[in-house]
Amino acid sequence: MANQYEFTPEDLQEIEDIKSKFPEVMPATLPTLWVAQRRFGHVEPDVQELVANTLGLPFSHVHGVATFYTQYYKEKKGKYVLDVCTTTSCQLCGGYDMLHYLEKKLGIKKGETTDDGLFSIQSVECLGACGYAPMMQITNDIYVNNLTEEKLDEVIKSLKAGKMPEFESVGMPQHTERS
């Protein structure tokens, strides 16, 4: 069966540039998977095979790499993937409440995607932002900190309107003191 996915000429050029940075092809696997995920929104098996063929690497190798990292989506996801942190600090500060609020609000469980293909919810391990717990990350990108139910309402509303929340700079306590 022919692969339903194809890189654009620009993608291929970018991949060539990536390859030229390394003495061997193998290290290009990770950045090329990113190119693919950006293009198709996920790296399901067919995309992994496309990456393997494009780089001339074994399909099995690309599969191993893709499944190692949770940030690569191995199946189709919503346009916005809401990664709600539920590790210790966030958990203590209400991470699960935020997760369950989102689940109820969007009518899906974690790991699922809404019918309109807009949102997926995942509960994830520590994202290294314990100081602003509870928090979540949107599609491997913007962090949304110090979550509350109201803040979530706002975020969902703006995402539905196609607008990513702004990057919030949160100062460290020592910085706040000094200013």
């Binding site: 992994q48 074994p58 399909f59 190798h61 191993g64």
Partner: peptide
């Protein structure tokens, strides 16, 4: 499969306590 038979058919999928060897999907 990488060093002796050179078919590269196996890999370790996933990680941590969930990983195990497997072929590429469908192969």
């Amino acid at each position: 499969t990488e060093e002796i038979s050179e078919t590269f058919q196996l890999t370790i999928a996933s990680r941590g306590d969930k990983n195990y060897p497997i072929t590429a999907p469908g192969k």
